[in-house]
Design a protein around this nucleic acid. Sequence first.
DNA 1: GATGAATGAGGCTTCATTCAT
DNA 2: TATGAATGAAGCCTCATTCAT
Lengths: 196, 196, 196, 196
Amino acid sequence: MAIQKSAKKRERILQAAIQTFSVNGYSNTTIKGVAEKAGVSFGTVFTYFENKENLFKASVLEPLEEVKAVMLTVPEPSDDPTKQIQEVIAKQFRFFAQQTTYARMLQYVIGQPERFQELFIELDQFSIQLREALRPLIVKGQEQGVLMEIEPNDISDSYLAFINGARLTFTDSADNEKAWDMFMRQAYLLFGPKLI
Amino acid sequence: MAIQKSAKKRERILQAAIQTFSVNGYSNTTIKGVAEKAGVSFGTVFTYFENKENLFKASVLEPLEEVKAVMLTVPEPSDDPTKQIQEVIAKQFRFFAQQTTYARMLQYVIGQPERFQELFIELDQFSIQLREALRPLIVKGQEQGVLMEIEPNDISDSYLAFINGARLTFTDSADNEKAWDMFMRQAYLLFGPKLI
Amino acid sequence: MAIQKSAKKRERILQAAIQTFSVNGYSNTTIKGVAEKAGVSFGTVFTYFENKENLFKASVLEPLEEVKAVMLTVPEPSDDPTKQIQEVIAKQFRFFAQQTTYARMLQYVIGQPERFQELFIELDQFSIQLREALRPLIVKGQEQGVLMEIEPNDISDSYLAFINGARLTFTDSADNEKAWDMFMRQAYLLFGPKLI
Amino acid sequence: MAIQKSAKKRERILQAAIQTFSVNGYSNTTIKGVAEKAGVSFGTVFTYFENKENLFKASVLEPLEEVKAVMLTVPEPSDDPTKQIQEVIAKQFRFFAQQTTYARMLQYVIGQPERFQELFIELDQFSIQLREALRPLIVKGQEQGVLMEIEPNDISDSYLAFINGARLTFTDSADNEKAWDMFMRQAYLLFGPKLI
DNA sequence: GATGAATGAGGCTTCATTCAT
DNA sequence: TATGAATGAAGCCTCATTCAT
């Protein structure tokens, strides 16, 4: 029995890298630091990741799939799109509230598009996918007359900006539920509800 | 005379530093690079700034005063707080739309609070000051019944998050006026207008 | 059976090592590279050679036996030493013309005697052995009056230098027969023929 | 007064580099070692040479000019080309006899043409230039009937090979005058003298 | 005040060697 | 015997900082 199954070790390194990158940024993160946090030797990091840049890319891209799953999985519109939207908002904010670490990595990359061009482009696809995911619910709400007639893309884009902004601004207490509840309520306003 | 010349040189260096820091981040910025962009010699940077860290701090803090002036200068409530709020939003978004470079520095610092603790604390004061600046207008709007009864601090906080989020997410075209107009309209929704 | 299989594997590794060392030199050659070229796994190299240095020594010394066989096998003087000498020259140059790869290794070692002291000493024996091998033919030729009275050792030494020099200088086209024919004719001049 | 004039320091580093490269080869030479031998700090090497590769190139190419001056400066043919040729040979062998160190670098590069392609090409020009330099003397000797009718280019090429070979093979005692005298005499044989 | 050469600490990366399977 | 993951020493290079001019 191997002391440590490869995949597990790789995962440990990746998690350590995400932690460290998100706190220190790219250049200020050292492989040595990641290795120590992961509990492996310095050289072992290079057994699993070709170089620092690749480790960073993996740290950004691999967890992205989960984020996409949460952010882009939106139910078919039902009779009560208002409630559905609020539930989607709640799910997404709760998720982001927990993703302090990883969210920072995303913001770090988004904030330096020239430097991390390749990753940036990948992340930029996201807003378009979110538009498509949210549109049916928004359209339904507007048809039912419970939402104002705002261009759905504008709603999606501003909603995404808001999540990011909330996540960025509100670092102090990732667990502060009240604050996140507040942000959720405010987020809903961006969808243009006619009554609250 | 000499003093004035110096002051200009210092300013050139500072501007070059802001440009470079905001594109490359802290570690990836070199004094040599800043000196070249500023058109001064390498050693001269150290004539005006003790070390790299101080140059960074100055790059973050000195322009902050102008930002504060724009963000915290809010008129006394008049009969038409709705219009006033919209004007404040417009002024602030227009300002931020132009501040691509510097805004990134702020987000860079906010996004790494442990690393730039001192600066972060300074920036964190901001949200409290913004709360105070906006409250009178919000309260007036709520008294007049044109705004929903939302806790004013929540509005300020989410508004600030939204500006940051918009600025962060929307990098492609700082000059795209339509997008910024859209963001302004959406920002106003966060204030809880009863009708639009 | 197992032993024979192993022997083949060892040989494959050795040939791959010679190829790689001769192109890249010692430090720039990696065990990984040798293993790949040999079609064996990385660790297997260490099954057959204790460490890199030993692999290098084997790469230099083992093929040396064949070189010695060719270079030191000289016929007993007959009535026509001129023809014999020319045949020896032809045989040796043809051999060296093909040994592009290995010849380089020899030159690499000879060129860095301090670094590869042990190997260098081994190779240095060679010139003495060559002296002894060639002397009878040279003496016979001088006795017959077809060669000038040059100290036989000087002829051997300069002849050896010339082969090495030709092999070193003439890398472009190991197969260029004309060039090698020319070198052979010139080599014969070093023996001091009275007429051509 | 500067402690050390720049140009001097650069030269010290270059000389130290040539010494070290020629003994250890490229990969086995460390910048640290060069710096120590040159009596400068590690970082200073990079003040004068962008990187290790450039230092190596400079170590090969810069002294090449002197070599060219010695090797390609050949007098106009006079009435006694035999004597002239012997003088040229003497001059060139004496020079090479002293250039133990640098000559090794040349051989090191020539011996690994794929690895040091750019330098190799530069050095390869040399044989063509030598052909042109020697041709007039050879032709004159042949016209006078003191040299056999050998293609002049073949003589030049084999002569160059012989110098290299002698320099390569004969490392033990660069100062051994007798040996070098012998090599000179043998070298002359390559020109095809009809009588000695 | 302005300059840039000198310095060396620190980081990434390579790679020989070990060793458990 | 064959394998390749784990390790860490060592090298190149960058760059902030110092300091002499």
